[in-house]
Amino acid sequence: MSSMSKFKKLAGLSALMFAALTAANSVNAANWRYAHEEYEGDVQDVFAYKFKEYIEDNSDNTVQVYRFGELGESDDIMEQTQAGILNFVNQSPGFTGALIPEAQIFFIPYLMPTDMESVVTFFRESKAINDDFPKLYAEKGLELLKMYPEGEMVITLDEAITTPEELKNKKIRVMTNPLLSETYSAFGATPTPLPWGEVYGALQTNMVQGQENPIFWIQSGGLYEVSPHLIFTGHGWFTTAMMANQNFYEGLSDADKELVRKASDFAFEEILDHIDGLADEALAKIQESSDEVTVTRLNEEQIAEFRKRAPQVEAKFVEMAGDSGQQLLNQFKQDLEDIKK
């Protein structure tokens, strides 16, 4: 056989092997389903698409992302994840609290710092976040992949206020979360649990007089149009969590488990860059869009009046979450002290 004939034969065999390998990969490739709670371009959406980007750039697997409303409300997508219909879900502890009482810890006011550097360090280094929470989620059939911050919580109201007394008789929409209701009761308001889809209309019709959310969500959801007075109380950051159905995750190959972990880490780093400065950009857009918007930033003396009501919320958390909640709270405080040092 001539050298040219050998070359052609080898080339042909290589092409066949490559085709067979490609076919095998396409058979093994999966389309994973991932749902979150926000709109196009919002923080959870950016995280989801960064996760998708990493998965698809580094494997033959694909990720189908579903945004808010496409598969229902937050409770719906969690039920679908637990049932194995969805592979991944992004849900805030505000909604997960009914399933995992300890997750409500993020709604103890003035527990978390509000400066960006401290918040990021906490999520990177906290033992409570990275060691304790995954165990709690695992008990509910969920593989916790990442917890991450979205932005400082801001209250919007029908008028500007600076004291808890001025919140008296005001109905404040809260997520369907018992501890968040306790927070606003402590602040002097009347908490009113509502699903997200009803919030704009409830504000518009004065069914409720206020609500809380990160500023980017207030901007993207148009909440400032019907609740134009923004109050920065410094009481906490909005936190969210990305997780997988545990049976699905445990059924993955070691290579795919590593892929999912690396994709989660990649999305986490990308989202920290994304939220840096996001609040200022969103506030600028709000102020550009409406002349009715006012911004009130409480000073330290005013914040102290709200802060002194926090211990009753902390006590309620321990009552709801029991011994494991107390242990988690102790770890949170230790982690925060370590960050200060």
Rank of each mutant, 00 (worst) to 15 (best):
64 Q>D: 14
226 V>W: 06
339 I>E: 09
221 G>F: 04
32 W>D: 04
99 L>W: 13
74 S>L: 12
43 V>I: 11
264 S>Y: 14
131 D>A: 04
108 I>N: 02
91 Q>I: 14
198 E>L: 10
232 F>T: 02
195 P>A: 15
53 E>D: 14
191 P>H: 00
128 A>W: 00
313 V>F: 06
234 G>F: 05
226 V>F: 04
46 V>A: 07
189 A>E: 11
217 W>T: 04
78 M>F: 07
213 N>R: 03
270 E>H: 11
172 I>V: 08
161 I>R: 04
303 I>A: 07
48 A>W: 11
146 K>F: 10
162 T>M: 07
309 R>N: 02
172 I>H: 04
80 Q>K: 08
15 A>N: 08
68 F>E: 07
309 R>P: 00
108 I>C: 05
274 H>Q: 04
318 V>D: 03
269 E>R: 08
323 D>V: 12
5 S>L: 14
341 K>T: 13
261 R>V: 12
309 R>C: 00
274 H>E: 10
237 W>C: 15
49 Y>T: 14
60 D>C: 03
231 I>D: 02
172 I>N: 01
294 T>I: 13
77 I>W: 10
93 P>D: 10
325 G>N: 10
26 S>L: 06
169 N>E: 11
177 N>L: 11
173 R>C: 07
96 T>Y: 08
202 A>Q: 13
126 S>H: 05
64 Q>A: 15
326 Q>P: 03
108 I>R: 01
92 S>V: 10
330 N>W: 00
281 E>L: 13
264 S>W: 12
126 S>M: 11
34 Y>S: 06
57 D>I: 09
240 T>A: 05
46 V>F: 11
234 G>P: 06
314 E>A: 14
309 R>Y: 15
286 I>Y: 00
64 Q>T: 13
277 G>W: 07
124 R>I: 12
